[in-house]
Structures are given as structure tokens and as C-alpha cells.
């Protein structure tokens, strides 16, 4: 279907991939296979670390989809992160569902609840949307803090995993995290390369023009919001399977959105490589500098400000402009067939 333009104008071909993207795909596949074997040769602390950074990454990826492609800048995605986590925990503890099975169910629940939430959130746009979604996330936090069945304000423990041996639990959690990361990248990549993705880019660039070309703007925005909620819920459910303990303050903390914003903005918004690069930088900073506590966070805030003011496209965007790098090409390029 990418060939529509080429068909109407035979002087051009539509190019999608390039050599770098094919190499990246091959290297990526090899890395995933290598990573999948980690439980047999790696240490369990590596697995725990990977699960944690995977959750941050998936969450940032979904925030990038929402803000970078859908144009909806939200500070309230932690509503779906926490909701996914709590649904997973309740299914495991009260309904006897295997928590690993409950991870995708938690994500589906987050997607489902996003539909009525969107009805309220979409009343606002721009900066107001950002703070409005934050209020909604606070409503989620305060609501769960008042439910005594899940431990109220102090939270509760995921007891459903008690019977499972520690090594098995850690390996399965790790594999789940790896699968979720691959699935999240594939989901966003395929979504953006599809016809809907093209519509989404059109909306981001000019909403009115897109609408006049027949793009169903409202329906597309809702679709993106629900997909992003699904991803956030997935990250949340996964995180609390790895963590075994949930509390409203941890699950619905605004820091989730803050870190996602930093990762995406520093890496480069509106490109799939952005959150990937951002998550790697975040992981490195976190590993080596988090002992500095407040100074570390202060530096992170300053870095986000500086990047926003002086490198609007983020680090990857800078590299892409300078050297034309693109690992996940979603744009369509017209080339002469003889060239």
C-alpha cells in the first residue's frame, strides 16, 4: 500500500528501509536471542535490573507514541501504569489467576478504562490536557488508597506468586519483560508504518488539514490514547510482578511520567529510536549517579531543560539530521528508479 504514490507517478519509487535499518534489524534479532539465553549464564541481579529498565522503556515508548505522534502531552499516564499493576495483583490474589497470565489482562483492563477516561480528558487540549490528566491520575491514586481490600494507603503484597520457586519466578519474569519489550517496539513500529500511522503523522503535523483530507481525527486520537494506555498498563503489571509489592504512591507516582518525559525528550521525541536511546542514557545515569540522590535528579531536570531549549529534536534527532541515521524508518521517501 506504500506504493500508491509510485503507481500514480511512475517516475518515482517509494523507499522505506535502508541498509542501516536492515542491519539494525539483524543485529536486534541476534541481541534478542542472546538476551533470551541470559537466565542460563547471567546473574539474577542483571535480570532484575533488566525487568526494571524494561518497564521504564515500555512506558516511555508509549508516552512517545501519545505525545510525539498523537500530539497529546500527558503528565497522567501513571494512571494506567498503576491501574494495570493493581488489576494484575487483584486477579492474582483474589481470583487465583496466574500473575504471569494476569500481566496482559492488566494491560487490557488499562486499555478498557482509558475509554471512559478519554471522555473526560479530551475536554482539554494542549497544556491543560497535561495537567488535567495528572488530576485524573490523582483520582486513581486516592481511590485505590481508600480501598482497604488492597491495603489502602500502605499497599499490599502479591501473594499469588508464593508457591513458585525463586529462580523460576525470576527467569519467567525476565522472559516476559523481554517479550513485552519486543512486542512494544513491534506494535509501535508496525502501527506507525501502517495507513493509520500515516494518518497519525498527518494529525500531528496539522490537525485541521488532516481532517479536511478525510482523516478521522477524533477516532485516531482515541485509538492512540487506548493503545498508549494498554502499553502503560503492560509496563505497570510487569513492574509489580517483578517488585512483588504495590502501593498507591509507588503505582501512581508522577515520577513515572517525569522519567518518561525525560527519556523521550533527551533521546528524541517523535521517533522510535528516541525512547530507546533515552532509556539507555537514563539507565547509565541511574546506575552510576543515583547515589547522588537529589543532585542527580536536579541534573536530570536541568538536562531536560537544556535539551528542550537547544536540541529540540533530542540526541537521536540531532544524529539523524546530521548523519541521516534511521534504525526504524517510518517515513516514505521518493526515489527515482534509475538513481
Amino acid at each position: 500500500m506504500g506504493n500508491d504514490i509510485a503507481m500514480t507517478n511512475p517516475a518515482f519509487d517509494v523507499a522505506r528501509g535502508n541498509r542501516a535499518s536492515h542491519t539494525a534489524l539483524a543485529i536486534g534479532a541476534a541481541l534478542v536471542l542472546l538476551a533470551a539465553s541470559l537466565p542460563w549464564w547471567g546473574e539474577s541481579s542483571w535480570m532484575r535490573e533488566f525487568v526494571e529498565i524494561a518497564c521504564y522503556f515500555i512506558f516511555a515508548m508509549m508516552w512517545n507514541l501519545l505525545a510525539g505522534y498523537g500530539g497529546m502531552v500527558s503528565i497522567g499516564q501513571q494512571a494506567f501504569f498503576g491501574f494495570g499493576g493493581y488489576v494484575m495483583l487483584m486477579l492474582g490474589n483474589f481470583a487465583g489467576v496466574n500473575p504471569f497470565v494476569a500481566i496482559p489482562l492488566g494491560a487490557f483492563a488499562a486499555a478498557l478504562v482509558a475509554v471512559p477516561v478519554s471522555f473526560v480528558a479530551f475536554r482539554l487540549s494542549g497544556g491543560y490536557f497535561a495537567i488535567g490528566t495528572w488530576v485524573i491520575a490523582e483520582v486513581f491514586r486516592l481511590s485505590f488508597a481508600n480501598v482497604s481490600a488492597v491495603g489502602g494507603g500502605s499497599g499490599t503484597t502479591l501473594t499469588a506468586l508464593r508457591g513458585i520457586e525463586k529462580a523460576t519466578r525470576e527467569s519467567v519474569t525476565y522472559w516476559m519483560a523481554l517479550a513485552c519489550v519486543v512486542a512494544a517496539i513491534a506494535l509501535v513500529y508496525l502501527f506507525l508504518r501502517s495507513k493509520r500511522g500515516l494518518a497519525l503523522l498527518a494529525i500531528r503535523d496539522n490537525e485541521v488539514a488532516a481532517e479536511s483530507q478525510g482523516v478521522p481525527v477524533q477516532r485516531m486520537k482515541l485509538a492512540v490514547y487506548v493503545v498508549a494506555a494498554f502499553g502503560a498498563g503492560l509496563a505497570g503489571a510487569l513492574y509489580f510482578v517483578g517488585n512483588l509489592r504495590i502501593s498507591p504512591d509507588a503505582a501512581f507516582s508522577v515520577n513515572w511520567s517525569a522519567f518518561a518525559i525525560f527519556m523521550v525528550v533527551i533521546g528524541g521525541i517523535g521517533r522510535i529510536e528516541g525512547p530507546l536511546v533515552g532509556a539507555l542514557i537514563f539507565w547509565a545515569l541511574n546506575k552510576f549517579l543515583s547515589d547522588y540522590g537529589t543532585w542527580y535528579l536536579l541534573g536530570l531536570g536541568l538536562l531536560a531543560i537544556v535539551v528542550t531549549l537547544f536540541f529540540k529534536q533530542g540526541l537521536w534527532g540531532y544524529a539523524q539530521q546530521r548523519w541521516g541515521w534511521s534504525l526504524f524508518p517510518t517515513q516514505r521517501k521518493l526515489v527515482r528508479p534509475d538513481a
Partner: peptide
């Protein structure tokens, strides 16, 4: 709306941690 949101949000983190320090 993104640049102003990120910059003020960054300022918010900076102020909180500066006061904490």
C-alpha cells in the same frame, strides 16, 4: 505545548530537589 511543559516540569524537579538539598 511540549517545550513549555517540559521546561516548566524540569524547573519543578530542579526546585524540589534544590529545596530538599
Amino acid at each position: 505545548p511540549l517545550p513549555s511543559l517540559v521546561v516548566t516540569f524540569g524547573l519543578s524537579i530542579v526546585i524540589q530537589n534544590l529545596l530538599l538539598e
